[in-house]
Write a protein that binds this DNA or RNA. Structure first.
Lengths: 148, 148
DNA sequence: TATATTTGCATCGTGAACGATATAAATGAA
DNA sequence: TTCATTTATATCGTTCACGATGCAAATATA
Protein backbone atom coordinates (compact mmCIF):
# COMPACT_ATOMS: atom_id res chain seq x y z
CA UNK A 1 0.00 0.00 0.00
CA UNK A 2 1.29 3.40 -0.96
CA UNK A 3 1.93 5.93 1.78
CA UNK A 4 -0.78 8.53 2.36
CA UNK A 5 1.59 11.39 1.59
CA UNK A 6 2.16 10.07 -1.93
CA UNK A 7 -1.49 9.52 -2.81
CA UNK A 8 -2.61 11.73 -5.68
CA UNK A 9 -5.86 12.40 -3.83
CA UNK A 10 -3.96 14.00 -0.97
CA UNK A 11 -2.06 16.51 -3.07
CA UNK A 12 -2.94 20.18 -2.89
CA UNK A 13 -0.76 21.00 -5.87
CA UNK A 14 -2.46 18.52 -8.18
CA UNK A 15 -5.83 20.03 -7.30
CA UNK A 16 -4.63 23.57 -7.96
CA UNK A 17 -2.94 22.49 -11.17
CA UNK A 18 -6.04 20.67 -12.43
CA UNK A 19 -8.53 23.32 -11.36
CA UNK A 20 -6.39 25.97 -13.02
CA UNK A 21 -6.11 24.02 -16.27
CA UNK A 22 -9.80 23.23 -16.44
CA UNK A 23 -10.88 26.77 -15.66
CA UNK A 24 -8.47 28.09 -18.28
CA UNK A 25 -10.02 25.63 -20.72
CA UNK A 26 -13.41 27.11 -19.92
CA UNK A 27 -12.12 30.50 -21.09
CA UNK A 28 -10.55 29.06 -24.23
CA UNK A 29 -13.50 28.97 -26.66
CA UNK A 30 -14.80 32.33 -25.43
CA UNK A 31 -11.44 34.07 -25.85
CA UNK A 32 -10.53 32.16 -28.99
CA UNK A 33 -13.40 33.81 -30.83
CA UNK A 34 -11.48 37.06 -30.41
CA UNK A 35 -8.04 35.66 -31.15
CA UNK A 36 -6.93 35.74 -27.52
CA UNK A 37 -5.33 33.23 -25.19
CA UNK A 38 -5.89 33.20 -21.45
CA UNK A 39 -2.49 34.76 -20.53
CA UNK A 40 -3.15 37.44 -23.14
CA UNK A 41 -6.53 38.09 -21.49
CA UNK A 42 -4.71 38.57 -18.18
CA UNK A 43 -2.49 41.19 -19.83
CA UNK A 44 -5.61 42.97 -21.05
CA UNK A 45 -7.06 42.96 -17.52
CA UNK A 46 -3.84 44.57 -16.29
CA UNK A 47 -3.84 47.22 -19.03
CA UNK A 48 -7.52 47.98 -18.71
CA UNK A 49 -6.87 48.82 -15.07
CA UNK A 50 -3.92 51.04 -15.99
CA UNK A 51 -2.79 51.69 -19.53
CA UNK A 52 0.78 52.38 -20.70
CA UNK A 53 2.88 50.21 -18.40
CA UNK A 54 6.43 48.96 -18.83
CA UNK A 55 6.93 45.23 -19.39
CA UNK A 56 8.30 44.84 -15.91
CA UNK A 57 5.20 46.22 -14.20
CA UNK A 58 2.93 43.93 -16.18
CA UNK A 59 5.11 40.93 -15.36
CA UNK A 60 5.21 41.83 -11.67
CA UNK A 61 1.43 42.27 -11.50
CA UNK A 62 0.95 38.79 -12.98
CA UNK A 63 3.83 37.30 -10.95
CA UNK A 64 5.43 36.18 -14.21
CA UNK A 65 8.95 36.62 -15.53
CA UNK A 66 9.66 39.11 -18.30
CA UNK A 67 10.94 36.28 -20.49
CA UNK A 68 7.41 34.87 -20.41
CA UNK A 69 5.70 38.20 -20.95
CA UNK A 70 7.90 39.61 -23.71
CA UNK A 71 7.03 37.05 -26.41
CA UNK A 72 3.40 37.17 -25.33
CA UNK A 73 3.32 40.94 -25.77
CA UNK A 74 5.00 40.63 -29.16
CA UNK A 75 2.21 38.33 -30.29
CA UNK A 76 -0.36 40.79 -28.96
CA UNK A 77 1.44 43.56 -30.83
CA UNK A 78 1.33 41.48 -34.01
CA UNK A 79 -2.42 41.08 -33.48
CA UNK A 80 -2.78 44.84 -33.15
CA UNK A 81 -4.03 44.72 -29.57
CA UNK A 82 -1.15 46.63 -27.99
CA UNK A 83 1.79 48.77 -29.03
CA UNK A 84 5.30 48.58 -27.58
CA UNK A 85 7.51 51.67 -27.59
CA UNK A 86 10.71 52.70 -25.85
CA UNK A 87 10.27 54.70 -22.65
CA UNK A 88 11.04 58.41 -22.81
CA UNK A 89 12.76 58.91 -19.43
CA UNK A 90 14.22 55.39 -19.31
CA UNK A 91 15.29 54.02 -22.67
CA UNK A 92 15.57 50.49 -21.26
CA UNK A 93 11.85 50.26 -20.68
CA UNK A 94 9.33 49.11 -23.25
CA UNK A 95 6.04 50.85 -22.60
CA UNK A 96 3.03 48.74 -23.51
CA UNK A 97 -0.12 50.58 -24.52
CA UNK A 98 -3.55 49.43 -25.59
CA UNK A 99 -4.56 50.14 -29.17
CA UNK A 100 -8.10 51.15 -30.05
CA UNK A 101 -8.70 47.49 -30.80
CA UNK A 102 -7.30 46.52 -27.39
CA UNK A 103 -9.57 48.99 -25.61
CA UNK A 104 -12.51 47.90 -27.74
CA UNK A 105 -12.12 44.28 -26.68
CA UNK A 106 -13.47 45.14 -23.25
CA UNK A 107 -16.94 45.61 -24.68
CA UNK A 108 -16.68 42.48 -26.79
CA UNK A 109 -15.60 40.36 -23.83
CA UNK A 110 -18.19 41.83 -21.48
CA UNK A 111 -20.08 38.57 -21.01
CA UNK A 112 -17.08 36.38 -20.28
CA UNK A 113 -16.60 36.98 -16.54
CA UNK A 114 -20.17 36.06 -15.76
CA UNK A 115 -20.19 33.09 -18.14
CA UNK A 116 -17.12 31.60 -16.53
CA UNK A 117 -18.27 32.60 -13.07
CA UNK A 118 -21.54 30.75 -13.43
CA UNK A 119 -19.74 27.73 -14.89
CA UNK A 120 -17.84 27.14 -11.65
CA UNK A 121 -20.74 27.68 -9.28
CA UNK A 122 -21.55 24.46 -7.44
CA UNK A 123 -22.52 23.20 -4.04
CA UNK A 124 -19.45 24.28 -2.15
CA UNK A 125 -18.52 27.24 -4.34
CA UNK A 126 -21.11 29.98 -4.02
CA UNK A 127 -21.12 33.77 -3.62
CA UNK A 128 -21.00 33.11 0.11
CA UNK A 129 -18.01 30.76 0.09
CA UNK A 130 -15.93 32.42 -2.62
CA UNK A 131 -14.43 35.07 -0.33
CA UNK A 132 -13.10 32.32 1.94
CA UNK A 133 -11.63 30.50 -1.03
CA UNK A 134 -10.06 33.73 -2.30
CA UNK A 135 -8.55 34.33 1.13
CA UNK A 136 -6.93 30.92 1.27
CA UNK A 137 -5.56 31.16 -2.28
CA UNK A 138 -4.25 34.66 -1.59
CA UNK A 139 -2.53 33.41 1.54
CA UNK A 140 -0.93 30.54 -0.36
CA UNK A 141 0.25 32.91 -3.07
CA UNK A 142 1.62 35.42 -0.57
CA UNK A 143 3.30 32.67 1.41
CA UNK A 144 4.98 31.09 -1.61
CA UNK A 145 5.81 34.37 -3.31
CA UNK A 146 7.70 35.62 -0.27
CA UNK A 147 9.73 32.43 -0.07
CA UNK A 148 11.20 33.01 -3.51
CA UNK B 1 -12.92 53.16 -13.47
CA UNK B 2 -12.76 49.57 -14.62
CA UNK B 3 -15.75 47.35 -13.92
CA UNK B 4 -15.49 45.06 -10.89
CA UNK B 5 -15.89 41.96 -13.03
CA UNK B 6 -12.71 42.78 -14.97
CA UNK B 7 -10.51 43.54 -11.97
CA UNK B 8 -7.63 41.09 -11.70
CA UNK B 9 -8.19 40.90 -7.94
CA UNK B 10 -11.69 39.51 -8.49
CA UNK B 11 -10.64 36.63 -10.71
CA UNK B 12 -10.75 33.09 -9.39
CA UNK B 13 -8.87 31.75 -12.38
CA UNK B 14 -5.90 34.08 -11.91
CA UNK B 15 -5.62 32.96 -8.29
CA UNK B 16 -5.71 29.29 -9.22
CA UNK B 17 -3.26 29.83 -12.06
CA UNK B 18 -0.83 31.73 -9.84
CA UNK B 19 -1.12 29.43 -6.84
CA UNK B 20 -0.59 26.44 -9.11
CA UNK B 21 2.47 27.96 -10.74
CA UNK B 22 4.06 29.03 -7.47
CA UNK B 23 3.43 25.70 -5.79
CA UNK B 24 4.88 23.89 -8.79
CA UNK B 25 7.90 26.17 -8.52
CA UNK B 26 8.28 25.06 -4.90
CA UNK B 27 8.61 21.47 -6.11
CA UNK B 28 11.07 22.41 -8.84
CA UNK B 29 14.40 22.43 -6.99
CA UNK B 30 13.46 19.35 -4.96
CA UNK B 31 12.48 17.31 -8.01
CA UNK B 32 15.21 18.77 -10.20
CA UNK B 33 17.83 17.13 -8.00
CA UNK B 34 16.47 13.83 -9.25
CA UNK B 35 16.02 14.86 -12.87
CA UNK B 36 12.24 15.12 -12.60
CA UNK B 37 9.70 17.75 -13.54
CA UNK B 38 6.43 18.26 -11.69
CA UNK B 39 4.22 16.56 -14.31
CA UNK B 40 6.65 13.66 -14.34
CA UNK B 41 6.32 13.46 -10.55
CA UNK B 42 2.54 13.23 -11.00
CA UNK B 43 3.04 10.27 -13.34
CA UNK B 44 5.18 8.62 -10.67
CA UNK B 45 2.44 9.15 -8.08
CA UNK B 46 -0.01 7.44 -10.43
CA UNK B 47 2.30 4.50 -11.11
CA UNK B 48 3.31 4.07 -7.47
CA UNK B 49 -0.38 3.62 -6.69
CA UNK B 50 -0.77 1.08 -9.49
CA UNK B 51 2.04 -0.06 -11.73
CA UNK B 52 1.75 -1.18 -15.37
CA UNK B 53 -0.98 1.07 -16.76
CA UNK B 54 -1.78 1.98 -20.35
CA UNK B 55 -1.15 5.58 -21.44
CA UNK B 56 -4.84 6.27 -21.50
CA UNK B 57 -5.40 5.33 -17.86
CA UNK B 58 -2.55 7.55 -16.73
CA UNK B 59 -3.87 10.44 -18.82
CA UNK B 60 -7.41 9.98 -17.46
CA UNK B 61 -6.19 9.86 -13.87
CA UNK B 62 -4.38 13.16 -14.37
CA UNK B 63 -7.18 14.65 -16.47
CA UNK B 64 -4.68 15.25 -19.26
CA UNK B 65 -4.76 14.40 -22.95
CA UNK B 66 -2.65 11.57 -24.28
CA UNK B 67 -0.86 14.02 -26.57
CA UNK B 68 0.46 15.68 -23.44
CA UNK B 69 1.32 12.45 -21.66
CA UNK B 70 2.94 10.55 -24.52
CA UNK B 71 5.96 12.86 -24.98
CA UNK B 72 6.28 13.16 -21.22
CA UNK B 73 6.43 9.37 -20.87
CA UNK B 74 8.98 9.17 -23.65
CA UNK B 75 11.21 11.54 -21.76
CA UNK B 76 10.75 9.46 -18.62
CA UNK B 77 11.61 6.36 -20.62
CA UNK B 78 14.75 8.07 -21.91
CA UNK B 79 15.67 8.80 -18.28
CA UNK B 80 15.20 5.14 -17.40
CA UNK B 81 12.35 5.79 -14.97
CA UNK B 82 9.68 3.83 -16.87
CA UNK B 83 9.40 1.35 -19.71
CA UNK B 84 6.78 1.44 -22.46
CA UNK B 85 5.74 -1.78 -24.15
CA UNK B 86 2.89 -2.88 -26.40
CA UNK B 87 -0.07 -4.44 -24.61
CA UNK B 88 -0.49 -8.23 -24.94
CA UNK B 89 -4.28 -8.46 -25.31
CA UNK B 90 -4.65 -5.09 -27.03
CA UNK B 91 -1.79 -4.19 -29.34
CA UNK B 92 -2.94 -0.57 -29.53
CA UNK B 93 -2.14 0.05 -25.91
CA UNK B 94 1.25 1.09 -24.60
CA UNK B 95 1.73 -0.28 -21.10
CA UNK B 96 3.83 1.93 -18.89
CA UNK B 97 5.78 0.25 -16.11
CA UNK B 98 8.13 1.54 -13.45
CA UNK B 99 11.74 0.50 -13.72
CA UNK B 100 13.78 -0.34 -10.64
CA UNK B 101 14.99 3.26 -10.77
CA UNK B 102 11.40 4.49 -10.96
CA UNK B 103 10.36 2.44 -7.94
CA UNK B 104 13.52 3.50 -6.09
CA UNK B 105 12.69 7.17 -6.50
CA UNK B 106 9.92 6.82 -3.92
CA UNK B 107 12.48 6.48 -1.14
CA UNK B 108 14.59 9.31 -2.51
CA UNK B 109 11.62 11.67 -2.71
CA UNK B 110 10.27 10.68 0.68
CA UNK B 111 10.78 14.12 2.25
CA UNK B 112 9.20 16.14 -0.53
CA UNK B 113 5.50 15.95 0.41
CA UNK B 114 6.17 17.24 3.91
CA UNK B 115 8.63 19.88 2.71
CA UNK B 116 6.13 21.31 0.26
CA UNK B 117 3.26 20.83 2.68
CA UNK B 118 4.95 22.88 5.35
CA UNK B 119 5.90 25.54 2.81
CA UNK B 120 2.25 26.38 2.14
CA UNK B 121 1.08 26.37 5.72
CA UNK B 122 -0.07 29.83 6.75
CA UNK B 123 -2.76 31.60 8.71
CA UNK B 124 -5.73 30.47 6.68
CA UNK B 125 -4.29 27.19 5.38
CA UNK B 126 -3.87 24.74 8.24
CA UNK B 127 -4.53 21.03 8.83
CA UNK B 128 -7.99 22.12 9.98
CA UNK B 129 -8.87 24.21 6.93
CA UNK B 130 -7.25 22.06 4.21
CA UNK B 131 -10.16 19.60 3.96
CA UNK B 132 -12.51 22.48 3.21
CA UNK B 133 -10.15 23.81 0.56
CA UNK B 134 -9.82 20.33 -0.96
CA UNK B 135 -13.60 20.03 -1.06
CA UNK B 136 -14.05 23.29 -2.92
CA UNK B 137 -11.27 22.52 -5.42
CA UNK B 138 -12.67 19.04 -5.97
CA UNK B 139 -16.11 20.52 -6.60
CA UNK B 140 -14.69 22.99 -9.10
CA UNK B 141 -12.80 20.22 -10.88
CA UNK B 142 -15.83 17.92 -10.96
CA UNK B 143 -18.07 20.74 -12.15
CA UNK B 144 -15.76 21.80 -14.98
CA UNK B 145 -14.75 18.29 -15.95
CA UNK B 146 -18.35 17.27 -16.47
CA UNK B 147 -18.99 20.30 -18.67
CA UNK B 148 -16.38 19.20 -21.19
C1' DT C 1 35.01 61.34 -14.70
C1' DA C 2 36.05 56.35 -15.23
C1' DT C 3 34.56 51.95 -14.02
C1' DA C 4 31.68 48.61 -11.74
C1' DT C 5 27.14 47.21 -10.70
C1' DT C 6 22.39 47.05 -11.29
C1' DT C 7 18.28 47.16 -13.96
C1' DG C 8 15.04 46.27 -17.97
C1' DC C 9 14.33 43.68 -21.62
C1' DA C 10 15.37 40.14 -25.02
C1' DT C 11 17.07 35.59 -26.80
C1' DC C 12 17.61 30.67 -26.46
C1' DG C 13 16.59 25.99 -25.09
C1' DT C 14 13.56 22.64 -22.84
C1' DG C 15 9.33 20.85 -21.28
C1' DA C 16 4.76 21.04 -20.85
C1' DA C 17 -0.49 21.77 -22.58
C1' DC C 18 -3.57 21.24 -26.14
C1' DG C 19 -6.13 21.54 -30.71
C1' DA C 20 -5.93 19.22 -35.04
C1' DT C 21 -4.75 15.38 -37.47
C1' DA C 22 -2.83 10.71 -38.63
C1' DT C 23 -2.32 5.66 -38.11
C1' DA C 24 -3.04 1.14 -36.76
C1' DA C 25 -5.62 -2.15 -34.08
C1' DA C 26 -10.01 -3.58 -32.40
C1' DT C 27 -14.90 -3.73 -32.76
C1' DG C 28 -19.44 -3.49 -34.91
C1' DA C 29 -22.67 -3.87 -38.67
C1' DA C 30 -24.17 -5.29 -43.24
C1' DT D 1 -16.40 -11.97 -44.11
C1' DT D 2 -16.05 -7.20 -45.60
C1' DC D 3 -16.28 -2.63 -44.68
C1' DA D 4 -17.31 1.21 -41.50
C1' DT D 5 -16.61 2.94 -37.01
C1' DT D 6 -14.41 3.37 -32.78
C1' DT D 7 -10.45 3.33 -29.84
C1' DA D 8 -5.47 3.92 -28.32
C1' DT D 9 -1.65 6.22 -29.28
C1' DA D 10 1.35 9.25 -31.81
C1' DT D 11 2.74 13.45 -34.58
C1' DC D 12 2.65 18.32 -35.55
C1' DG D 13 2.16 23.23 -34.72
C1' DT D 14 1.45 27.03 -31.49
C1' DT D 15 1.68 29.15 -27.07
C1' DC D 16 3.04 29.40 -22.71
C1' DA D 17 6.52 28.96 -18.40
C1' DC D 18 10.95 29.41 -16.94
C1' DG D 19 16.07 28.76 -16.17
C1' DA D 20 20.22 30.54 -18.21
C1' DT D 21 22.36 33.99 -20.56
C1' DG D 22 23.25 38.34 -23.23
C1' DC D 23 23.11 43.30 -23.96
C1' DA D 24 22.39 48.05 -23.45
C1' DA D 25 20.93 51.84 -20.52
C1' DA D 26 20.97 53.70 -16.01
C1' DT D 27 22.98 54.16 -11.54
C1' DA D 28 26.45 53.77 -7.97
C1' DT D 29 31.10 53.97 -6.54
C1' DA D 30 35.96 54.90 -6.61
Amino acid sequence: MIEEKFKLDNQLCFRLYTASRLLTQAYHPLLGEHGLTYPQYLVLLVLWEKDAQPVNDIAKRLLLETNTVTPLLKRMEAEGVVTRSKGKEDARQMIVKLTKKGRGLQKKLTDIPEAVGSAVLCESVTPETVPGLFGMLDDIIKQLHHQI
